[in-house]
Design a protein around this nucleic acid. Structure first.
Length: 453
RNA sequence: GGCGGUGUAGCCAAGUGGUAAGGCGAUGGUCUGCAAAACCGUUAUACCCCGGUUCGAAUCCGGGCACCGCCUCCA
């Protein structure tokens, strides 16, 4: 008997039973980055959330077509290129490669398709032509704008009426637009910009249109799931819906999944506040598995406060969990219950936080031990945390540390301890600590390890 | 102002009608010369406030209060 998946659909603001268009298959399109700078922890969260969703869907037998795009033509890329006196193509490529590398390092599986705007210009031009033909867009002075008044459902994703949007809009008045909310499908070329020939003259695509084209190319005119960060709901996803649905019948995407954003020490992480944390920087400090578990122990829709302390908490809890497992006597305890429970949590709007809680519970109840840990494999695979216990295997390793110093110190100290010269023994222990070594006195011997942080 | 979200222990965080998961911390203990580490216990009669529905509400409804996000580029 197959269980239903309930998922929260941002389009209807309610939890719904997931019904794929084609039974057993899922088409999912996730908005990837605009590649104009190094990717940050917001990208990481989104990527990890959807990575786990895709892994889970595959685990329970769906054939998933996972598409994530790169927006490699955009104002910000051009701006950056001009600033650095480089080609915008080179800027885009550089950060695209970085992103791919970062995702690999975070343990994310590669999407099946990673289309770029620059590879889909013809498709974009064709779609714009079609939108104009159907009278949902107009050309003026080499620009093409989508006319939102023509699309009656405009605002249905962000739950805004166009009136209130106009009232509140802060966009500079653009005399070319019939309605201030109209948005560009095609932009006329300016100096120092990449451009392509089109029926409206040289220019380039506006933001939004690429996603309508590329999702359609890989998933069809109607597909199952469209994902991305909450901040994309308006205008990006709203506009995608308008562009796509004005010429096709039915829903563009049936289900919209939006992940919550990130705060850094209780403050919004944003470019303007200058508190962005790059994935690369985070990875020099934190094991990717810690980062994954950190994100996955929150429900994907809630905002998350990222801080040093939280990562340390995760690290401690995992370390304890590992010890607990290793110290448990091998017993052949059946973990079918465990697997049913976390799977059930995942069926309910991908509740990774609950799933992880169940994982810890089973560990702390002593039900997971060295001889049945294999039964946890599927859980680890779905969460993308395979081999998580290996994070802690570097303790007491000599690798590139001069161990003669510390071994000398230990024998001197043990001599002092034998003579009950506690003062000297404590002094030596302090010295070791100052040099970054922690001493662990056991019955027969003294072990040492390097101070973690 | 419009739309959306959130409010659960010291902190973080699950829980959408059946009597409060999990993690960190704290605390008691074991171990230790003392520590550290590790391990074993304990740790919310209670879910922002006020009403209501119900046999039963953190969960549903109404009304407040507080915080946050989007409405401009952002994952």
């Amino acid at each position: 008997m197959k269980k239903d998946i309930h998922l929260y659909n941002s389009l209807t603001n309610s939890k719904e039973i997931f019904k794929p268009l084609v039974p057993g298959n899922v088409g999912i399109y996730v908005c990837g980055p605009t590649v104009y700078s190094s990717s940050h922890m917001g990208h990481a969260r989104s990527a990890i959330v959807f990575d786990v969703i895709v892994r889970f869907l595959r685990q329970i037998g769906f054939k998933v077509n996972y598409v994530k795009n790169f927006t490699d033509i955009d104002d910000k890329i051009i701006e950056k290129a001009n600033e650095l006196n480089q080609k915008s193509e080179d800027i885009a490529n550089k950060y695209k490669q970085e992103y791919i590398e970062d995702m690999k390092n975070l343990g994310c599986i590669s999407p099946d398709h990673e289309p770029c705007v620059s590879q889909n210009i013809n498709g974009i031009i064709d779609l714009i032509k079609e939108i104009i033909d159907k009278d949902f867009a107009y050309e003026i002075n080499g620009d093409v704008y989508f006319q939102i008044d023509k699309f009656k459902e405009y605002g249905k994703l962000s739950n805004q009426s166009t009136d209130s949007m106009i009232e509140n809009n802060r966009i500079e008045f653009n005399p070319n637009k019939k309605n201030p909310l109209d948005f560009a499908l095609w932009k006329k070329v300016k100096n120092n910009e990449p451009s392509w020939e089109s029926p409206w003259g040289n220019g380039r695509p506006g933001w939004h249109i690429e996603c309508s084209v590329m999702s359609c190319k890989h998933l069809g005119k109607n597909f199952d799931i469209h994902g991305g960060g909450r901040d994309l709901i308006f205008p990006h996803h709203e506009n995608e819906i308008a562009q796509s649905e004005c010429i096709n019948s039915g829903n563009f995407a049936n289900y919209w999944i939006h992940n919550g954003l990130i705060n850094i020490n209780k403050e919004k992480m944003s470019k303007s506040l200058g508190n962005m944390i790059n994935i690369k920087d985070a990875l020099t400090r934190w094991h990717p598995i810690l980062i994954r578990i950190f994100f996955l122990s929150h429900h994907y829709r809630t905002p998350v406060d990222l801080s040093e302390e939280k990562l340390i908490e995760i690290e401690k809890s995992l370390k304890k969990a590992k010890n607990k497992i290793m110290l448990s006597k091998p017993k052949s305890i059946d973990l079918t219950d465990f697997n049913n429970l976390w799977m059930e949590a995942m069926h309910d709007d991908f509740n990774t936080a609950k799933a992880i809680g169940i994982f810890f519970k089973y560990i702390n109840d002593g039900k997971i031990n060295p001889s049945n840990i294999d039964q946890v494999k599927i859980f680890e695979q779905v969460m993308g945390i395979t081999n998580w216990t290996s994070i802690f295997e570097h303790d007491s390793e000599t690798s590139n540390i001069d161990s003669s110093f510390i071994n000398n110190l230990i024998s001197k100290r043990n001599e002092a301890r034998k003579n009950k010269n506690w003062e000297l023994a404590d002094e030596l222990r302090n010295e070791a600590e100052q040099k970054g070594f922690i001493l662990i006195d056991e019955k027969e011997q003294t072990l040492w390890k390097t101070k973690d942080r």
